[in-house]
Design a binder for these strands. Structure first.
Length: 105
DNA sequence: CATATGACGATAT
DNA sequence: AATATCGCCATAT
């Protein structure tokens, strides 16, 4: 569907060293509350489309995956891009959060 | 076709 | 503030 394609497109457009949230992606893709769809799409197709799925975190800037089920991998990938985690294992979205407008400015 | 599910998020309690 | 519940809607079964 279009939504899926848009999500894929948006995820691919997240610049290295930045992160986006499920909710943001969903909104940008046309669904105000389709965050769950984004998550579903990512875990189901990220491998096929070679998406930078690790740049997608929840609204607090935390990794939603459970330790042992991808958490460590995602964290490692993010850190390898220069993203740092605070004491609460969260990313400072004020610093690393990606604004869609960045692609227009 | 009906029901379940989900890397979430916003509201209600 | 912390927890529980509902909404959202494309896929899976």
């Amino acid at each position: 569907m279009d939504f899926s394609r848009r999500v894929i497109d948006l995820v691919k457009s997240v610049p290295r060293g930045k992160v986006a949230t499920y909710g943001q992606i969903a909104r940008w893709a046309g669904h105000n509350r389709g965050a769950r769809l984004v998550s579903y799409i990512l875990h189901s197709i990220s491998e096929k489309y070679d998406l930078p799925w690790h740049r997608i975190v929840n609204r607090r800037g935390e990794i939603s995956l459970k330790p042992g089920y991808g958490y460590e991998l995602q964290r490692q990938l993010l850190e390898s891009e220069g993203i740092t985690f605070d004491s609460g294992n969260a990313i400072d979205l004020t610093t690393y959060g990606w604004n869609i407008r960045d692609q227009f400015t």
